[in-house]
Write a protein that binds this DNA or RNA. Structure first.
Lengths: 187, 187
DNA sequence: ATTATCTATAGATCTATAGATAATGC
DNA sequence: ATTATCTATAGATCTATAGATAATGC
């Protein structure tokens, strides 16, 4: 599981530092020097492992894809609620990707395509999950495809409210309120 | 309504250019020079009107507060849907404030406090609106205070999905699906 | 007179390249 | 031998200050 070669370990260290720095400053304002400093390297030393700043961002995004690679047959709505609960304990990671999402809507942002593709796929997965849970119609009459972007929007929107004011917003409890709105599945 | 003095007009021009540049690059990556260029000024000329970059940001945020100053007694849920529809025609503005929101969760961002305060107040307004519409319980059994952060989250979350892929997400239609989930008010 | 704008510039950054040296692993 | 890291540095930026000049409005 852990990186094998010396080089892989170094890359993993750098990636973790990059996640932290991006959480603190976003990608554009994150400097290679500040990432390098956290792992005891010079900025030029870091560039030996990732040849450009963008290569480092790409590696960050690829890592995220690995976390998310949960076989989606196993997903259920109540497990989604647990995921939200879990995220509420990993503020740094949530902040990293919320900051990246925010930046990604600006022009020529190197993560823009990534997020565009990702949301298309997340909406599709969510629709599938809802279909598995409810069949072709939710109790409200909405189709899974209609409800999917709503559920995804709630997940992201809640993260921003929570990051700005963790004491004012209980992400997990609020997400469960969405499940109330969606209605109880029949099964 | 329009700015009166020469100076006020100039400031208004600069503000509009700043909104555009922030939409394109975010605040941190927006340079004073690029804002100045759009109004035919040098960067130093711009600084005559806004003494620091942060002062310019503050002015941008204050302007937003003015737009939002709709007497909230007049708000109703279906008017919110029209607002979403309207926003779908103002991509630039939506992008400006989505980018700022995204950046604002990073440390020491000059808009962080602004957004924290703003969301507290937006949630309170939304709860008030829901109470006016539904009374103390929505059809689902949720209280207005429980549903408010959800509705706000949907508004923001949809904006990100729409900005990334306008053709894939119909903001207004999807928001109306949320209204279906909330249920028809009795009155 | 006052306000607006410009030129010049200081002082910080930032990314990336070139090439030397140090450390590691056959 | 190869990989990792460093020093040196080019070439772009960026914000902000200082002080001169141009334009505007009593």
């Amino acid at each position: 599981m852990t990186a094998r070669t010396r080089s892989d370990r170094r890359r993993a260290e750098i990636l973790r530092a990059a996640l932290d720095v991006i959480a603190e400053r976003g990608y554009r304002a994150a400097s290679l020097a500040s990432v390098a400093e956290r792992v005891g390297l010079t900025q030029q030393g870091l560039l030996h492992h990732f040849p450009t700043k963008e290569a480092l961002l790409v590696a960050v995004l690829e890592e995220r894809d690995q976390w998310d690679a949960v076989p989606d047959r196993q997903w259920r709505l109540d497990l989604l609620a647990s995921l939200v609960e879990y995220n509420a304990m990993r503020r740094g990671i949530v902040q990293t990707f919320s900051a990246l999402l925010g930046e990604s809507v600006t022009e020529e942002h190197p993560a823009r395509e990534y997020f565009t593709r990702r949301y298309a796929s997340v909406r599709a997965d969510m629709a599938r999950l809802l279909r598995a849970e409810y069949g072709e119609r939710l109790p409200s009459g909405l189709t899974p495809a209609q409800a999917a972007p709503l559920v995804v929007a709630v997940l992201d929107g809640l993260q921003f409210q929570w990051l700005l004011d963790p004491d004012a917003v209980d992400m997990a409890a609020t997400f469960r309120h969405l499940l109330v709105l969606l209605g109880e599945p029949d099964h």
